[in-house]
Protein backbone atom coordinates (compact mmCIF):
# COMPACT_ATOMS: atom_id res chain seq x y z
CA UNK A 1 0.00 0.00 0.00
CA UNK A 2 2.83 2.35 0.90
CA UNK A 3 4.56 1.49 -2.35
CA UNK A 4 1.46 2.34 -4.29
CA UNK A 5 1.09 5.76 -2.68
CA UNK A 6 4.80 6.47 -3.28
CA UNK A 7 4.36 5.76 -6.99
CA UNK A 8 1.20 7.83 -7.02
CA UNK A 9 3.12 10.74 -5.47
CA UNK A 10 5.61 10.62 -8.30
CA UNK A 11 2.94 10.39 -11.00
CA UNK A 12 0.58 13.08 -9.74
CA UNK A 13 2.55 15.98 -11.31
CA UNK A 14 2.32 14.22 -14.67
CA UNK A 15 -1.45 13.79 -14.28
CA UNK A 16 -1.78 17.49 -13.48
CA UNK A 17 0.07 18.45 -16.66
CA UNK A 18 -2.00 16.08 -18.80
CA UNK A 19 -5.22 17.34 -17.21
CA UNK A 20 -4.14 20.92 -17.89
CA UNK A 21 -3.75 20.21 -21.60
CA UNK A 22 -7.02 18.27 -21.77
CA UNK A 23 -8.98 21.12 -20.17
CA UNK A 24 -7.29 23.58 -22.50
CA UNK A 25 -8.15 21.42 -25.54
CA UNK A 26 -11.78 21.03 -24.41
CA UNK A 27 -12.10 24.77 -23.76
CA UNK A 28 -10.96 25.70 -27.25
CA UNK A 29 -13.42 23.25 -28.76
CA UNK A 30 -16.28 24.10 -26.42
CA UNK A 31 -16.01 27.88 -26.73
CA UNK A 32 -14.92 27.71 -30.36
CA UNK A 33 -11.86 29.85 -29.77
CA UNK A 34 -10.15 30.59 -33.10
CA UNK A 35 -6.59 29.34 -33.31
CA UNK A 36 -5.16 32.81 -34.04
CA UNK A 37 -6.28 33.81 -30.52
CA UNK A 38 -5.64 30.67 -28.51
CA UNK A 39 -4.58 27.58 -30.43
CA UNK A 40 -5.55 24.19 -29.03
CA UNK A 41 -2.72 22.03 -27.68
CA UNK A 42 -3.28 19.56 -30.50
CA UNK A 43 -2.67 22.36 -33.03
CA UNK A 44 0.47 23.45 -31.17
CA UNK A 45 1.83 19.92 -31.05
CA UNK A 46 1.05 19.58 -34.76
CA UNK A 47 3.07 22.71 -35.54
CA UNK A 48 5.90 21.46 -33.36
CA UNK A 49 5.99 18.17 -35.23
CA UNK A 50 5.81 19.86 -38.64
CA UNK A 51 8.50 22.50 -37.95
CA UNK A 52 10.51 20.27 -35.64
CA UNK A 53 13.92 20.98 -37.17
CA UNK A 54 13.73 24.81 -37.34
CA UNK A 55 12.22 24.97 -33.83
CA UNK A 56 15.00 22.78 -32.44
CA UNK A 57 17.56 25.00 -34.18
CA UNK A 58 16.17 28.10 -32.49
CA UNK A 59 15.78 26.27 -29.19
CA UNK A 60 19.39 25.14 -29.39
CA UNK A 61 20.53 28.72 -29.95
CA UNK A 62 18.52 29.93 -26.94
CA UNK A 63 19.71 27.04 -24.79
CA UNK A 64 23.39 27.59 -25.37
CA UNK A 65 23.30 31.38 -25.02
CA UNK A 66 21.34 30.88 -21.79
CA UNK A 67 23.79 28.30 -20.51
CA UNK A 68 26.84 30.42 -21.28
CA UNK A 69 25.31 33.49 -19.62
CA UNK A 70 24.30 31.31 -16.70
CA UNK A 71 27.79 29.83 -16.39
CA UNK A 72 29.23 33.35 -16.15
CA UNK A 73 26.56 34.21 -13.61
CA UNK A 74 27.58 31.22 -11.50
CA UNK A 75 31.28 32.07 -11.68
CA UNK A 76 30.87 35.77 -10.89
CA UNK A 77 28.01 35.19 -8.47
CA UNK A 78 30.10 32.76 -6.41
CA UNK A 79 33.14 35.00 -6.50
CA UNK A 80 31.18 38.14 -5.65
CA UNK A 81 29.19 36.34 -2.98
CA UNK A 82 32.33 35.05 -1.27
CA UNK A 83 33.95 38.49 -1.34
CA UNK A 84 30.87 40.36 -0.11
CA UNK A 85 29.92 37.70 2.43
CA UNK A 86 33.35 37.67 4.01
CA UNK A 87 33.30 41.37 4.79
CA UNK A 88 30.21 43.05 6.23
CA UNK A 89 31.77 46.41 5.40
CA UNK A 90 32.15 45.60 1.72
CA UNK A 91 28.64 44.17 1.73
CA UNK A 92 27.18 47.40 3.10
CA UNK A 93 29.31 49.48 0.76
CA UNK A 94 28.31 47.71 -2.44
CA UNK A 95 24.75 46.73 -1.71
CA UNK A 96 23.01 49.98 -2.78
CA UNK A 97 24.93 50.07 -6.05
CA UNK A 98 24.07 46.44 -6.78
CA UNK A 99 20.40 47.00 -5.96
CA UNK A 100 20.48 49.94 -8.34
CA UNK A 101 21.91 47.83 -11.14
CA UNK A 102 19.49 45.05 -10.46
CA UNK A 103 16.44 47.34 -10.59
CA UNK A 104 17.16 48.34 -14.18
CA UNK A 105 14.79 46.36 -16.43
CA UNK A 106 17.08 44.19 -18.54
CA UNK A 107 15.00 44.81 -21.65
CA UNK A 108 16.06 48.45 -21.39
CA UNK A 109 19.71 47.45 -21.42
CA UNK A 110 19.47 45.40 -24.63
CA UNK A 111 19.55 48.41 -27.03
CA UNK A 112 22.74 49.56 -25.31
CA UNK A 113 24.23 46.08 -25.64
CA UNK A 114 23.31 46.08 -29.32
CA UNK A 115 25.17 49.36 -29.82
CA UNK A 116 28.22 47.87 -28.10
CA UNK A 117 28.23 44.33 -29.44
CA UNK A 118 25.90 44.25 -32.43
CA UNK A 119 22.85 42.01 -32.68
CA UNK A 120 22.74 38.29 -32.04
CA UNK A 121 24.44 35.98 -29.60
CA UNK A 122 26.51 38.28 -27.42
CA UNK A 123 23.72 40.59 -26.18
CA UNK A 124 21.65 37.46 -25.37
CA UNK A 125 24.48 35.97 -23.34
CA UNK A 126 25.07 39.22 -21.51
CA UNK A 127 21.44 39.83 -20.64
CA UNK A 128 21.09 36.21 -19.46
CA UNK A 129 24.14 36.83 -17.30
CA UNK A 130 22.95 40.19 -15.96
CA UNK A 131 19.55 38.96 -14.93
CA UNK A 132 20.69 35.75 -13.23
CA UNK A 133 23.89 36.95 -11.57
CA UNK A 134 22.31 38.96 -8.79
CA UNK A 135 20.27 36.30 -6.95
CA UNK A 136 23.26 33.93 -6.97
CA UNK A 137 25.62 36.51 -5.52
CA UNK A 138 23.21 37.72 -2.83
CA UNK A 139 22.40 34.17 -1.74
CA UNK A 140 26.02 33.09 -1.47
CA UNK A 141 26.87 36.26 0.44
CA UNK A 142 23.98 35.65 2.83
CA UNK A 143 25.06 32.06 3.44
CA UNK A 144 28.55 33.18 4.36
CA UNK A 145 27.53 36.23 6.36
CA UNK A 146 25.14 34.30 8.59
CA UNK A 147 27.87 32.03 9.96
CA UNK A 148 27.30 31.41 13.67
CA UNK A 149 29.60 33.69 15.70
CA UNK A 150 30.35 30.87 18.16
CA UNK A 151 31.67 28.68 15.39
CA UNK A 152 33.87 31.52 14.23
CA UNK A 153 35.17 31.90 17.80
CA UNK A 154 35.95 28.19 18.00
CA UNK A 155 38.04 28.42 14.85
CA UNK A 156 39.69 31.72 15.73
CA UNK A 157 40.70 30.31 19.09
CA UNK A 158 42.43 27.52 17.17
CA UNK A 159 44.49 30.08 15.32
CA UNK A 160 42.47 29.86 12.10
CA UNK A 161 43.04 32.51 9.46
CA UNK A 162 40.18 34.14 7.60
CA UNK A 163 40.90 31.91 4.65
CA UNK A 164 40.61 28.77 6.79
CA UNK A 165 37.26 29.87 8.12
CA UNK A 166 36.06 30.56 4.59
CA UNK A 167 37.23 27.24 3.16
CA UNK A 168 36.29 24.99 6.09
CA UNK A 169 32.99 26.56 7.06
CA UNK A 170 31.87 29.63 5.11
CA UNK A 171 31.77 28.18 1.61
CA UNK A 172 30.32 24.75 2.50
CA UNK A 173 27.73 26.50 4.61
CA UNK A 174 26.66 28.77 1.75
CA UNK A 175 26.15 25.89 -0.68
CA UNK A 176 22.46 25.27 0.16
CA UNK A 177 21.83 28.98 -0.40
CA UNK A 178 23.76 28.76 -3.65
CA UNK A 179 21.73 25.87 -5.02
CA UNK A 180 18.46 27.43 -3.94
CA UNK A 181 19.45 30.51 -5.93
CA UNK A 182 20.42 28.41 -8.98
CA UNK A 183 16.86 27.19 -9.32
CA UNK A 184 15.62 30.77 -9.47
CA UNK A 185 18.51 32.01 -11.57
CA UNK A 186 18.26 29.41 -14.34
CA UNK A 187 14.68 30.38 -15.16
CA UNK A 188 15.68 34.05 -15.04
CA UNK A 189 18.56 33.34 -17.42
CA UNK A 190 16.05 32.08 -19.99
CA UNK A 191 14.06 35.26 -19.55
CA UNK A 192 17.22 37.31 -20.16
CA UNK A 193 18.24 35.46 -23.30
CA UNK A 194 14.75 35.49 -24.81
CA UNK A 195 14.20 39.18 -24.07
CA UNK A 196 17.37 39.97 -25.94
CA UNK A 197 16.38 37.70 -28.85
CA UNK A 198 12.99 39.36 -29.21
CA UNK A 199 14.67 42.77 -29.51
CA UNK A 200 17.79 42.05 -31.50
CA UNK A 201 18.57 38.68 -33.03
CA UNK A 202 18.21 36.55 -36.15
CA UNK A 203 17.82 33.29 -34.32
CA UNK A 204 16.66 31.86 -31.02
CA UNK A 205 13.23 31.15 -29.58
CA UNK A 206 12.63 34.86 -28.88
CA UNK A 207 13.28 35.72 -32.51
CA UNK A 208 11.12 32.80 -33.65
CA UNK A 209 8.16 34.00 -31.57
CA UNK A 210 8.41 37.63 -32.63
CA UNK A 211 8.67 36.79 -36.30
CA UNK A 212 5.83 34.26 -36.04
CA UNK A 213 3.66 36.83 -34.26
CA UNK A 214 4.27 39.38 -37.03
CA UNK A 215 2.89 36.79 -39.49
CA UNK A 216 -0.04 36.03 -37.14
CA UNK A 217 1.25 32.48 -36.92
CA UNK A 218 -0.06 32.17 -33.37
CA UNK A 219 0.31 28.36 -33.09
CA UNK A 220 4.03 28.76 -33.80
CA UNK A 221 4.28 31.46 -31.10
CA UNK A 222 2.74 29.05 -28.64
CA UNK A 223 5.06 26.28 -29.81
CA UNK A 224 7.92 28.63 -28.88
CA UNK A 225 6.44 29.24 -25.46
CA UNK A 226 6.01 25.54 -24.88
CA UNK A 227 9.57 24.71 -25.92
CA UNK A 228 10.88 27.46 -23.63
CA UNK A 229 8.99 26.12 -20.68
CA UNK A 230 10.17 22.56 -21.39
CA UNK A 231 13.77 23.77 -21.43
CA UNK A 232 13.17 25.74 -18.24
CA UNK A 233 11.74 22.72 -16.44
CA UNK A 234 14.62 20.58 -17.69
CA UNK A 235 17.32 22.95 -16.45
CA UNK A 236 15.49 23.43 -13.17
CA UNK A 237 15.44 19.65 -12.80
CA UNK A 238 19.19 19.45 -13.41
CA UNK A 239 19.80 22.11 -10.72
CA UNK A 240 17.47 20.32 -8.30
CA UNK A 241 19.19 16.95 -8.82
CA UNK A 242 22.65 18.45 -8.26
CA UNK A 243 21.30 20.14 -5.15
CA UNK A 244 19.95 16.84 -3.79
CA UNK A 245 23.23 15.08 -4.43
CA UNK A 246 25.56 17.69 -2.97
CA UNK A 247 23.73 19.44 -0.16
CA UNK A 248 21.19 16.83 0.86
CA UNK A 249 22.38 17.38 4.44
CA UNK A 250 20.76 20.80 4.51
CA UNK A 251 17.36 19.39 3.64
CA UNK A 252 17.51 16.41 5.95
CA UNK A 253 18.70 18.36 8.94
CA UNK A 254 15.42 20.25 9.23
CA UNK A 255 13.00 17.36 9.19
CA UNK A 256 14.42 14.20 10.61
CA UNK A 257 16.04 15.23 13.85
CA UNK A 258 16.07 12.62 16.58
CA UNK A 259 15.06 14.14 19.86
Amino acid sequence: MRNFSAILDKLVPLFVIIAFFIIWELATVLFQIPSFLLPAPSTIFGVMAKSFVPIMGHAGQTLWTTCIGFAFAIAFGLLGGVVLGSSPRLYRAFYPLLIGFNSIPKVAVVPVLVIWFGIGTIPAIISAFLISFFPIMVNVATGIATLEPELKDVLLALGAKRRDIMVKVGIPRSMPYFFASLKIAITLAFVGAIISETVAANSGIGYLMVSAASRFDVPLVFAGLLVTSIMGVGMYGVAAVIEQRTVGWAMRSTGAQVQ
Partner: peptide, 18 residues
Protein backbone atom coordinates in the same frame (compact mmCIF):
# COMPACT_ATOMS: atom_id res chain seq x y z
CA UNK B 1 45.32 38.53 19.59
CA UNK B 2 43.40 35.26 19.48
CA UNK B 3 45.21 32.70 21.64
CA UNK B 4 46.19 29.54 19.80
CA UNK B 5 45.50 26.08 21.09
CA UNK B 6 42.44 26.81 23.18
CA UNK B 7 39.53 24.42 23.06
CA UNK B 8 36.05 25.94 23.23
CA UNK B 9 32.54 24.57 23.55
CA UNK B 10 29.30 26.50 23.82
CA UNK B 11 25.69 25.97 24.81
CA UNK B 12 24.92 25.54 21.13
CA UNK B 13 26.89 22.56 19.76
CA UNK B 14 27.65 24.36 16.44
CA UNK B 15 28.53 21.15 14.61
CA UNK B 16 28.99 21.29 10.86
CA UNK B 17 25.90 19.61 9.38
CA UNK B 18 27.74 18.40 6.27
Amino acid sequence: GPVNCVGMAFQNPTLLPW
